[in-house]
Nucleic acid binder design. Sequence first.
DNA 1: TTAATTGCAAAAGATTTGCGGGGTT
DNA 2: AACCCCGCAAATCTTTTGCAATTAA
Lengths: 163, 163
Amino acid sequence: MVASGDAMESRIGRMCIERGLKMTGQRRVIARVLSEAEDHPDVEELYRRAVDLDSRISVATVYRTVRLLEEKGILERRDFGGGRARYEATEEGDHYHLIDVDTGKVVEFEDAEHTALMHRIAERLGFDLVSHRLELFARRKPTPPDEKPARAARAASKDGSRR
Amino acid sequence: MVASGDAMESRIGRMCIERGLKMTGQRRVIARVLSEAEDHPDVEELYRRAVDLDSRISVATVYRTVRLLEEKGILERRDFGGGRARYEATEEGDHYHLIDVDTGKVVEFEDAEHTALMHRIAERLGFDLVSHRLELFARRKPTPPDEKPARAARAASKDGSRR
DNA sequence: TTAATTGCAAAAGATTTGCGGGGTT
DNA sequence: AACCCCGCAAATCTTTTGCAATTAA
């Protein structure tokens, strides 16, 4: 058989191959879109981005692929309210999301203290923690008129899919 | 007019009256079902329980009522996974949910430390916390063979709606 | 009386699926 | 060649809504 060079394969594309998934053209495209996404797109948005790269892709396939990758642990499904599921690549270490209730922007953050606390709480109740889910809904703090405007938050601000 | 005694009104029924909602027969029934619920039923389940008390109720009305009560702050909508929204009466103080991944049972718990931490985190990111959401998914800890079996957890164990 | 509420069934929005054709291993 | 995957459209599932009839205030 022909040697299949992974050289041009996206990060998620490589993960698919590692897990022995059959790499079709559309999977490669979707994997690339996901690899390049820095936000938390929903299926509609993934579909738009994928079609931009290759028009021979249907929403059904995006749904099927996103589902498959979630089962394989490559993707994680999120619910930020708004009816549609949103996705992001699985990353090392837990991180959480703060949703700006006015703009819909999503800010990611880590907090080891919180993670540890979750384990302690489950423990206290007689359980082993399998996973947990945390979302903060918040409003940007108004800048006090007398102080110099606050600089941008250190955490990355990632917007969601289009409205 | 005839004096309308609240005496036989359910707890949530009284809250509806306080907020000036028009009390129809179906609302009274749904309010009663909600007042008596000790779990986190979804709309289907609420509908079943309501119909048991009065067959002249439609699912549409349950959907409409549950939505109205949520807007009025009387109910809170929950998402424990599984596709359908689930509801519980708003209570004093924040409490959270641990879902047993094997049985679907829901355990409620409070944790002031966690609540405080959430405010601190939002603050740190430059936001005012509006609300937050936390769910633990966990598995009951196996009883070590050498020790006497653990007694029931102190927290109340509430199951969800039927599967 | 008057405006709000209800039932019914149709509509909507998101996601899944059956099927015949096509691509990957 | 064998089996998996794709596109399409129809099907599901949950929740919402238009409309005419009914009811609380």
